[in-house]
């Protein structure tokens, strides 16, 4: 595979439909679904690992419990968590560009009002 960079667009043209009374609820729904997705991905990976380790007879439960990441491990894990944030909060970032400024102001005004009540 070539390493040449092609970036596909992240956002859909047009305005995202709002189904709930307040736009925050629509945003939260998206975050919850992304979170559910990532949880499922994680579960599948752990499941695959356990099954492989079990088949090969190499799972050391004690070592797993006391696992300490090396600096390289830690860097890889931090990068993965960053990637995870991008996916988890995908909609939060896309909203900023997709909503018209008027909609964004409405969101802000609503939040401000609620917080000062």
């Amino acid at each position: 595979m070539s390493g040449e960079d092609i970036t596909l667009p992240r956002r859909t043209r047009g305005r995202r439909p709002q189904f709930f009374e307040t736009p925050e609820t629509d945003v939260l729904m998206s975050v919850v679904l992304a979170m559910a997705g990532e949880l499922s991905v994680l579960y599948d990976r752990v499941d695959a690992m356990q099954r492989l380790l079990d088949r090969q007879g190499v799972l050391d439960a004690e070592a797993l419990e006391h696992f300490t990441p090396s600096p390289e491990d830690e860097a890889a894990r931090a990068a993965r968590r960053q990637d995870y944030m991008q996916r988890l909060f995908r909609v939060v970032r896309a909203e900023a560009a997709v909503f018209s400024s008027k909609d964004a102001e409405e969101v802000l005004a609503n939040v401000e009002r609620e917080l000062s009540e």
Binding site: P17, F19, D26, S30, L33, A34, G37
Partner: peptide
């Protein structure tokens, strides 16, 4: 309807 539609739009984007 709102839950169905919101989840379906999200699933489509995903």
């Amino acid at each position: 309807f709102q839950l169905y539609s919101a989840m379906r739009v999200n699933a489509q984007e995903m």
